[in-house]
C-alpha cells in the first residue's frame, strides 16, 4: 500500500524495558515505523500497550532501551521531550478542556501570542491568528466544524477526535500515536476517523495506532505489531495475514519470529 515513503524510518524502538516494582510491564519491545506508514499496536489487556504508549509519549521514562526518531537517538523524560522530538499523542480521553472552544483547545499551551513585543512578553493572545490557523488545520483534514466558538462538550465524539488529531498534526509532528481513537464512536464516525488517519499518513506522518478493533486495524494499518506479555512477538504486514492469524498472535496461540 503506502509503503512508498522510501522506507525512511520515522520511529525506531529497540529493546524497551519498563518495570514497576516486581512487575515487568515491558520486557523487550523492538519495532520500527516508517514515514507515512500506519502501524497497528495489538495486544491483549495487560500486554503492555498503554505502558509502551506512555513510554513513547513521555509519561513514563523507560528503564532501558533506545528510542530513535528519524535515525537520531532521543531521550524522552517528559511529554515536552516527546513533543520536541516530533512525537504527538492523541490520548484516549483526547486531553481536551470541555469548557474551552475548538480554537482554545487546538492551541492549548501553544498559543499564538500578539505581534506587539510588549504584549507578547505578557502572553497576550492573538485570537484572530489562532482562529485563522485553526481553520486551516481543520480544512487540511477535510473536517467540517459548525463553529470555531463551539465548546468542546457540545461536539460529537467524531468531531472531538478530529480536533485532537488536528491538534497533533498541526504541530508538525512526524509521529502521531493514537490510543483507541474509535473506541467510543459509532460506525459512521469511526469511518470518518479512518479517513482522517489516511489523510495524515498520506501527508508523510507516521502513525502508531493502538486498537482492539481488528476490523479497524485491517482497514487502516499497513503493518501490525503484536505485544504479548510485555514483548513484541510479531511484526507482520497486514495484507499478508488474516484476522484469525492476528487473534492467534494476540492470545499467544500462534507464534511468528519477530
Amino acid at each position: 500500500m503506502v509503503r512508498s515513503s522510501l522506507d525512511q524510518v520515522a520511529l525506531e524502538l529497540s529493546s524497551i524495558k519498563k518495570s514497576f516494582g516486581g512487575v515487568h510491564a515491558l520486557q523487550d519491545v523492538t519495532f520500527t515505523i516508517n514515514k507515512g506508514e500506519v502501524v497497528g499496536l495489538l495486544g491483549d489487556n495487560g500486554a503492555g500497550k498503554s505502558t509502551l504508549v506512555k513510554c513513547i509519549s513521555g509519561v513514563y521514562a523507560p528503564d532501558s532501551g533506545e528510542i530513535k526518531v528519524n535515525g537520531k537517538a532521543v531521550v524522552i523524560r517528559s511529554p515536552e521531550d516527546a513533543r520536541a522530538a516530533g512525537i504527538e499523542t492523541v490520548f484516549q480521553d483526547l486531553a481536551m478542556i470541555p469548557e474551552f472552544n475548538i480554537v482554545q483547545n487546538l492551541f492549548l499551551n501553544r498559543e499564538i501570542k500578539h505581534k506587539n513585543p510588549i504584549l507578547r512578553w505578557l502572553g497576550w493572545l492573538d485570537t484572530k491568528a489562532m482562529t485563522k490557523r485553526a481553520r486551516k488545520a481543520l480544512n487540511r483534514l477535510n473536517t467540517r466544524i459548525p463553529s470555531y466558538n463551539e465548546q468542546i462538550h457540545n461536539l460529537s465524539g467524531g468531531q472531538r477526535q478530529a480536533i485532537a488529531i488536528a491538534r497533533a498534526v498541526n504541530w508538525g509532528a512526524d509521529i502521531v500515536i493514537m490510543d483507541e481513537p474509535t473506541a467510543a464512536l459509532g460506525v459512521e464516525q469511526s469511518a470518518q476517523v479512518n479517513d482522517l488517519i489516511k489523510v495524515i499518513s498520506s501527508q508523510g506522518v507516521a502513525v502508531l495506532l493502538i486498537s482492539h478493533n481488528m476490523q479497524h486495524v485491517v482497514e487502516t494499518c499497513d503493518r501490525a505489531v503484536v505485544l504479548y506479555q510485555g514483548s513484541s512477538v510479531a511484526d507482520v504486514a497486514v495484507a499478508e495475514v488474516t484476522k484469525e492469524d492476528l487473534v492467534g498472535l494476540i492470545t499467544g496461540a500462534k507464534k511468528i519470529a519477530a
Partner: peptide
C-alpha cells in the same frame, strides 16, 4: 486575554488534559 489565564482555566477544567498538553 493572556495565555496565563487560559492555562489557569485549563488546569481547573481538566487537569489531566492540561498536564498532557505540557502545562
Amino acid at each position: 486575554k493572556l495565555a496565563a489565564g487560559r492555562h489557569l482555566l485549563a488546569v481547573g477544567g481538566n487537569p489531566v488534559a492540561a498536564r498532557a498538553m505540557g502545562i
